[in-house]
Design a protein around this nucleic acid. Structure first.
Length: 547
RNA sequence: UGGGCCGUGGCGAAGCGGUUAACGCAUCGGGUUUUGAUCCCGACACUCGUAGGUUCGAUCCCUACCGGCCCAGCCA
């Protein structure tokens, strides 16, 4: 399943860098999550990109937690993030925290002040905002812009010592308030935050901001290609400015690519956490969530996620991927690897009237007809069976060739039956079918040729289960708010019946319920309740005709 | 409106001055198959946002226009 990394505009840049010997042929990337939430499929795109590019060029990739905002970050996320990356199957070269560099970053800030490239500003956030100008109007210089170097050093040290309260002072770069790029209008690079940091505790009360931290961290770690998403394009000027001014021997280059958008999903941590907090879903690992942990619980394999990432490509174009692409990757893999079993989601009881009482027979069936090495299983059948309600129609539509009154269908792996009688309760609901079978059709060459083939389970020999059927999280392809939440994204089948062969204690086994889809045991369930999650349906051209 | 970036079939995506404009998903035909699955085979952009220009020749270069995304956190 691991395919060679596709070429893209970034590998073109790297090839070119290698030709000009820009980094002496070195390729060193990094994946820099902020530990403020769980990783999602969009992060997987970035993880695959960074690690695969490193692999492709015999380079390495670091993991770096970008933890410069203690108010938002949390140690709990760190382990979850590491677990997800490991689960995807990637090994980082070394693991770092931006906070490991606080001392160095502080020294760099000091040297910028000494060279008159930074100053301490006592302006309020409102004033700074106002002086920054707008998209069309230039900014104006702060009253503190010409503070002396000595005074700046003294104040910056006092900031560090905790002599001021939050917001009283900030450190700003002295670049150009007239720049058409707002990021260059004397950006704030340090703020006072008397907040305990998850790693450095109370060592610091000033914290560097992203723009100042990220490029310096990249330089320190000897990163060559710093890959990030499109919204940072405007920050590249600043990135380069800082790298130049701190005079570090390593000059990493930032390259931006477009974020992943997946139809019927949302990819922002804020929106996803809102789904969790407002209980739309059961948690970050709800199988409907586009989080790595959710998809893992849903039954996606890491190889299918990597395959998906390689299929969607890397460009600078804003794009939105159809769910079909994702679904196809997991179907394709599971078709080859999943054992087959029969499962009835909405049971409808059938009595095979001419089948002898108290008898049963065993039938041999392939575990996976597409994999000859997968062996066979034994299925039992007796007088009472269940079929899916979907597979019976009292008044069949045109082209419906499953069971209906007087019609003959084949029970998969077994024999043909004819529906003789429909039994209803007082409300007119169908509760049972009486059918008769044709013993000769056990040999399918001898029985009548029938178009319909349905699955079933032996009512006297099956396992009760609850099955979670998942559908798209949002109704609209490109939802903008939670209004679009699909309340039918989870449908619970409470009295499903499964073929006994299913290994209920194997939580990682993925099965194809023949004619239905792929399923995995929910890993959060106890042994008393057997719960399976639907990973993805089989393609269904009947549903297409029928709609 | 200032700046940055992007526009190739329904959705993605190759293509880097001469190609029959790859490939994947989707779709539509047909075949195999007693999973309406899989598999196989075939179809699916005289045209690359539009208009000009350069060139013997442009999806690739230039200009203008049109459309879309991003930026005015002491978030990342």
């Amino acid at each position: 399943m691991d395919k060679p990394t596709n070429k893209n505009f970034i590998t073109n840049i790297i090839d070119n860098d290698n030709n000009t010997n820009k980094f002496s042929g070195r390729v060193h990337t990094r994946f820099p999550p902020e530990p403020n939430g769980y990783l999602h499929i969009g992060h997987a795109k970035s993880i695959c990109l960074n690690f695969e590019i490193a692999n492709l060029y015999n380079g390495v990739c670091n993991l770096r937690f970008d933890d410069t905002n203690p108010e938002k970050e949390n140690i709990e996320y760190i382990e979850a993030i590491k677990k997800d990356i490991e689960w995807l199957g990637y090994e980082w070269n070394s693991m770092h925290y931006s906070s490991d560099y606080f001392e160095k970053i502080y020294k760099y800030a000091l040297s910028l002040i000494e060279n008159n490239f930074a100053y301490v500003d006592s302006s309020s956030p409102e004033v700074i905002k106002k002086e920054r100008g707008t998209l069309t109007e230039p900014g104006t210089n702060s009253k503190d812009r010409d503070r002396t170097i000595e005074e700046n050093i003294k104040l910056f040290n006092e900031m560090k010592e905790g002599n001021f309260s939050d917001g009283e002072y900030v450190l700003r770069l002295k670049i150009n308030m007239l720049s058409p790029n707002i990021n260059m209008r004397d950006p704030v690079i340090y703020r006072i935050k008397k907040f305990e940091h998850h790693r450095t505790g109370n060592d610091w009360c000033i914290y560097p901001m992203y723009d100042f931290t990220h490029c310096i961290s990249d330089a320190i770690e000897n990163i060559t290609h710093s890959l990030c998403t499109l919204e940072f394009e405007d920050h590249r000027d600043l990135y380069d400015w800082i790298i130049e001014k701190i005079n570090h021997e390593n000059k990493p280059q930032q390259i931006e690519f477009s974020r992943l958008a997946l139809e019927h999903n949302m990819m922002s941590k804020r929106k996803l956490s809102e789904l969790v907090e407002k209980k739309y879903v059961s948690g970050w690992d709800d199988p409907r969530m586009p989080t790595i942990s959710g998809m893992r619980r849903r039954g996606f394999t890491s190889s299918s996620i990597k395959d998906f990432c390689s299929r969607i490509g890397i460009t600078k174009k804003n794009s939105s991927i159809e769910m079909g692409v994702l679904e196809n990757t997991i179907r394709e893999e599971l078709n080859l690897s999943a054992k087959r079993v029969m499962g009835v989601l909405d049971p409808l009881k059938i009595i095979i009237t001419n089948y002898p009482d108290n008898e049963k027979e065993e039938i041999l069936a392939a575990n996976n007809p597409n994999d000859k090495d997968s062996g066979q299983r034994n299925i039992s059948i007796s007088k009472n069976i269940y079929i899916d309600r979907d597979d019976f129609m009292e008044f069949p539509e045109k082209k419906y060739f499953r069971l209906s009154p007087g019609k003959e269908v084949r029970l998969r792996h077994a024999f043909n039956i004819v529906c003789d009688k429909v039994i209803k309760d007082n409300d007119g609901k169908i509760i049972e079918l009486e059918c008769s079978f044709d013993p000769v059709s056990r040999d399918m060459k001898k029985g009548n040729k029938v178009k319909g083939m349905i699955h079933w389970v032996d009512a006297n020999n099956c396992t009760d289960a609850i099955i979670n059927i998942y559908d798209r999280l949002f109704k609209e392809p490109n939802p903008s708010d939670l209004e679009s939440f699909n309340e039918k994204s989870l449908v619970i089948k409470k009295d499903a019946k499964l073929e006994k062969n299913i290994a209920i204690n194997n939580y990682s086994a993925r099965y194809q319920f023949e004619r239905v889809g792929y399923f995995i045991r929910d890993n959060k369930t106890s042994n008393e309740t057997i719960i399976y999650n639907k990973i993805v349906s089989l393609k269904d051209s009947w549903k297409k005709i029928n709609k």
